[in-house]
Write a protein that binds this DNA or RNA. Structure first.
Length: 563
RNA sequence: UGCCCGAUGGUGUAAUGGUAACACAUCUGAUUUUGGUUCAGACAUUCUAGGUUCGAGUCCUAGUCGGGUAACCA
C-alpha cells in the first residue's frame, strides 16, 4: 500500500483508494486484464497492463488474466501464448487465468433466465433489417416483429439455436430493452449469434456464441472484479452492462474508462497491425519496427523502460498523443545505466597510421561503462591499421565539424591524437583509405605540450575486427500521425522505406562474436544495440539498433541547412 | 442530426475553492577522452463568455472546439 500512497494518484487510483477507504467490496481490490486473443499485444496494451496489475499490486489486491475469446473466427492459440509471454516479460504475473469461453455454459443459463423473465427474445431479422429497425440518431427505432414472441416459443427457439438447427446468422437472441433509447447500445442489442465455427478452446461444442457485450460484464462479475478498467469507447456500453447485471442480480463491478495510449509516429490499430503482418510489410508481429511488445523486446527495449514509460504518460479521460521522444528517453535512460560500451564501426573507412610500426600491436584500456564504476575496464588492441566511421571524416569540413579532416587532428578514443595527411581514392573517386600519422606523445589522449583537439572519434583495429550485420531501425511512419492519410492515398503508402537500413559491412570488436541473444551494448557514439534473437548464429551475431544516442551534431547540421 | 465524454506551455501530465507545477521537446552555457551522460539556465500554459465566491484551472450556465457512438467485432 505504500506504493499507492507515495506515487502520483491518477483519477482511477483516487477512485480505488476512496472505495477501499469506504470499505466497498469489503475493501477488496480485484482487477483484470481482458485481451482478445486475435493479435499480439502492443505498447497501448502495456499501459493497460501496468494500470491493472499495478492497481492490484499497490492496493494489495489481485489481478486476473482473462482472454475474451467470444469470436472463434478471429482467435487463435498462437495469440494466447504470445499474450502470456508478453505480460510475463513486462514483469507481471496474474493471480488467475480465465477465458470468457469458460463461462459459455453459465452465460447460456443466464440467457434462459432473461428469456423466462421476458427480457430477451429470439429475433429472425437479418443484419440489414436489424440496422433498419434500429433507427438513427434522430429517430427512434421500431420494435422487431419478433419482439413479442411467447416465453415458450423463445425458449424452444433458443434451444434449437444451440443445438445447431439454424444456419449462421439466421437468428439472434436479443435483449428486450428500449428501441427508442438515446443510447444505441440499449436498442435491443444482440446477445447471441449463430456461428458454426471451431473455437480454439471449446472446439465444435458450440455454434452459438455470446456477443462481447453480453459476455464481458458478466465475466467480470463472475470473477468478482471490483474495478473494471477499460478504454473510453466503452463508456456508452456501461449502461448496458449495468442493465444485464441488474436483471441478473449478480455482483456489480464498477467500470471506469480511461483514454487509450497514442504515440506519435506509431500505428496502434490492431486491424492495421494485422495487415502489416499478413501483407508482408514487416517480417512478423515481433519485427523490431512494430509497436508490439514483442517487437520492442526484439528491438532491445527493456521491460523497465516500458513500465517506466507507461507510468510517465499518465491516466486521463481525454485523448492525447504522447511524443515518441518520451519512449526513447525511457529506454536511453535505462540502457545508459546498464549497457557496456563497445566499439562498432557501422560504415568503416580504412585508416593506415604510417608512423606506426607494421605488425605491432598494443593494448589500450577502456572503461566498460563510465556510468558504472563497478563495471571496470577492459583492453582493446591498437595497431597500424584501423577502421573509423566514414561519417567521422570530411574533406571539406564546416567550422563546427570537430572530427577528422585533411591536415586536422582528432583524438582516437582511449588512444592517441591522429592527423590525416592524405586521402586515397579509387577509380570511382570514392574515398577508400586515409593515410595518417599519430603522435606517440599523446598516449592516453592528452598532449604533453597542452594542445587540444575538439573531437574524439571511435576506432577499431582492422586485423582484429569481426564482420557483422547491423540493422538500423527508425520510425515506421515519418509523419506524426500515421492514421492521417492524404486524399487518395492508402495508409500503407506512408510506410517509411528507411525504417530498416541494413549495414552488412560493420566492423565490431571480436568479443561480440560470443554475445548471446538479447545481450545489450552501447556502440560508442552510435547508439544502443542488442543481439537479434532470431537471426543471430553462434559466432555470427546480428545486431539491432534499439535507439540512437542523442545527437547534437545532427541538430547542428539541420540548423546549418536551414540558415 | 441525437446522445455521451473531454479541453492546463510545442507535447504529456499535476494542482481536488487559496502563490499554476513537474517531465519531455526546443534553445543557451558549463563539464566531458562518447557532439553521450551530468550540471546550470532560458522559452512557454488554464478554449470563450457570463455567473457563484473574499478568492475559480477547479463549482454553475451557455457557447466553441475535439473525441466517441447507429457489427450478428472486441
Amino acid at each position: 500500500m505504500n506504493e499507492a500512497e507515495t506515487r502520483h494518484q491518477d483519477f482511477i487510483r483516487q477512485i480505488v483508494a476512496s472505495d477501499v477507504a469506504a470499505g466497498k467490496n469489503d475493501g477488496r481490490v480485484h482487477t483484470r486484464f481482458p485481451p482478445e486473443p486475435n493479435g499480439y499485444l502492443h505498447i497501448g496494451h502495456a499501459k493497460s497492463i501496468c494500470l491493472n496489475f499495478g492497481l492490484a499490486r499497490e492496493f494489495g489486491g489481485t489481478c486476473n488474466l482473462r482472454f475474451d475469446d467470444t469470436n472463434p473466427e478471429k482467435e487463435d492459440v498462437e495469440f494466447v501464448d504470445s499474450i502470456r509471454q508478453d505480460i510475463r516479460w513486462l514483469g507481471f504475473d496474474w493471480d488467475n487465468e480465465y477465458f470468457a469461453s469458460d463461462y459459455f455454459e453459465q452465460l447460456y443459463e443466464w440467457a434462459v433466465q432473461l428469456i423466462k423473465a421476458g427480457k430477451a427474445y429470439v429475433c429472425d431479422l437479418t443484419v440489414d433489417e436489424v440496422r433498419e429497425y434500429r433507427g438513427g440518431w434522430n429517430q427512434p427505432g421500431r420494435n422487431s416483429p419478433y419482439r413479442d414472441r411467447s416465453v415458450e416459443e423463445n425458449l424452444e427457439l433458443f434451444e434449437r439455436m444451440k443445438s445447431g438447427e439454424f444456419r449462421d446468422g439466421e437468428r439472434t437472441l436479443r435483449a428486450k430493452i428500449d428501441m427508442s433509447s438515446d443510447n444505441m447500445n440499449l436498442r435491443d442489442p444482440a446477445m447471441y449469434r449463430i456461428r458454426h465455427a471451431t473455437h480454439h478452446r471449446t472446439g465444435d461444442k458450440w455454434c452459438l456464441y455470446p456477443n462481447y457485450d453480453w459476455a464481458h460484464g458478466q465475466s467480470d462479475s463472475i470473477e468478482g472484479i471490483t474495478h473494471s478498467v477499460c478504454t473510453l469507447e466503452f463508456e456508452h456500453h456501461r449502461p448496458l452492462y449495468d442493465w444485464y447485471i441488474e436483471q441478473l442480480g449478480i455482483h456489480h463491478p464498477q467500470q471506469i474508462e480511461f483514454a487509450k495510449l497514442a504515440v506519435s509516429h506509431t500505428m496502434m490499430s490492431k486491424r492495421r497491425l494485422t495487415e502489416l503482418v499478413t501483407g508482408g510489410y514487416v517480417e512478423g508481429w515481433d519485427d523490431p519496427r512494430m509497436p508490439t511488445i514483442s517487437g520492442f523486446r526484439r528491438r532491445g527495449f527493456t521491460p523497465d523502460s516500458i513500465r517506466n514509460f507507461a507510468n510517465r504518460v499518465g491516466i486521463t479521460k481525454h485523448n492525447s498523443v504522447t511524443d515518441l521522444a518520451l519512449l526513447n528517453l525511457c529506454i536511453r535512460e535505462h540502457l545508459n545505466k546498464i549497457a557496456p560500451r563497445v566499439t562498432g564501426v557501422l560504415d568503416p573507412l580504412k585508416v593506415v597510421i604510417e608512423n606506426y610500426p607494421e605488425g605491432e600491436f598494443e593494448m589500450r584500456e577502456t572503461a566498460i561503462n563510465p556510468e558504472d564504476e563497478l563495471a571496470g575496464t577492459r583492453e582493446v588492441p591498437f595497431g597500424r591499421e584501423l577502421y573509423i566511421e566514414r561519417a567521422d571524416f570530411l574533406v571539406d569540413a564546416p567550422k563546427k565539424f570537430f572530427r577528422l579532416t585533411v591536415g586536422g587532428e582528432v583524438r582516437l578514443r582511449n588512444a592517441y591524437f591522429l592527423k590525416c595527411n592524405q586521402v586515397v581514392k579509387n577509380e570511382a573517386d570514392e574515398i577508400v583509405e586515409l593515410r595518417c600519422t599519430y603522435d606517440p606523445q599523446t598516449a592516453g589522449g592528452k598532449a604533453p605540450d597542452g594542445r587540444k583537439v575538439k573531437g574524439t572519434i571511435h576506432w577499431i583495429s582492422a586485423p582484429h575486427a569481426i564482420d557483422a550485420e547491423v540493422r538500423l531501425y527508425d520510425v515506421l511512419f515519418e509523419n506524426e500521425d500515421p492514421s492521417d492519410v492524404p486524399e487518395g492515398q492508402d495508409w500503407k503508402d506512408q510506410i517509411n522505406p528507411n525504417a530498416l537500413v541494413v549495414m552488412t559491412n560493420a566492423k565490431l570488436e571480436p568479443m561480440l562474436a560470443d554475445a548471446s541473444a538479447g545481450d545489450q551494448f552501447q556502440f560508442v557514439r552510435n547508439g544502443y544495440f542488442c543481439v537479434d534473437s532470431k537471426d543471430s548464429r553462434p559466432g555470427k551475431p546480428v545486431f539491432n539498433r534499439t535507439v540512437t544516442l542523442k545527437d547534437a551534431w545532427i541538430n547542428e547540421q539541420k540548423k546549418g541547412s536551414v540558415s
